[in-house]
Amino acid sequence: MTLQTNIRAMKKTLVLIAAVAGLGLAAQPALAAGEKHTPRSGGFSFEGPFGTFDQGQLQRGYKVYREVCASCHSMDLMHFRTLAEPGGPFYESGQASPAENRFVKALAKEAQIGDIDTETGEPLMRDGTPADRFPNPYPNPTAAAAANGGAAPPDLSVMAKARHDGANYIYSLLTGYAAVPQGLQMRPGQNYNKYMSGDLTPFMPEGAEVPPGGFIAMANPLSTGQVTYDDETVASVDQMAKDVAAYIAWASDPKQVQRKQAGLGVMIFLFLFAGITYLSYRRIWKGVAH
């Protein structure tokens, strides 16, 4: 077989594989009428194969989470020490270990963690340490739902992976609160958001054009200047939404940037390996008619 037929055969294989993979990628559920808007792009620095997180943005995003969101939304799967992992908001390149990072120790100390007295067994609250999880605002899921009109605020630990196009979705949602469209029957305790999933057809008069989006139990949580950033960035709603979306995207998968960087090395190795092996293959098969 000549090089041309080799390559043709390989191309056919790759096309077929790509077709199958493309099918898998495209196999999203069908969209019903009146579907939510496609999320707006937050222009995030971490998108793409070479993207990285902006540490300043992550620090601002953490502040927004801690001061605004954490009063209702838990991040049960996050520990304070994770904030000091390489690529994280408070990583310092001289730290002995993430748990010894000075910023993380200070941040953890600000949190009050429920524990028991080591001698009497009585429940008490103590200062947090880096090894502790983020404290949950509610003692249990039932209390969370009861305090929020029956709908518990979802945990945000992996929220960027739990929604399609997560970071952009979170950014869009937080900036997507708009005036209630004409004729939309509001349900009590609900707010209208352009980017929320749902079907508003039952809540519009017969025959009227159904607006995109759906009802969300959370009222608009952000207002200008709500948080004072330490780096003096202007805390507009747009800025805070971007920052907290970036922070949540990092928290959902703290190792993603390291993984992409390792991936680059692996791909280079694999291409070289493929080249060497192909040459070996040709050498072995040289002159053999097949």
Binding site: F269, L272, F273, I276, T277, L279, S280, R283, I284, W285, K286, G287, V288
Partner: peptide
Amino acid sequence: GEGGDASRRDFIHIAAGAAA
């Protein structure tokens, strides 16, 4: 009449083996 008995000691094969 040539090529079937590829020399085992060819550098390219050693390189491929090492990469493996």
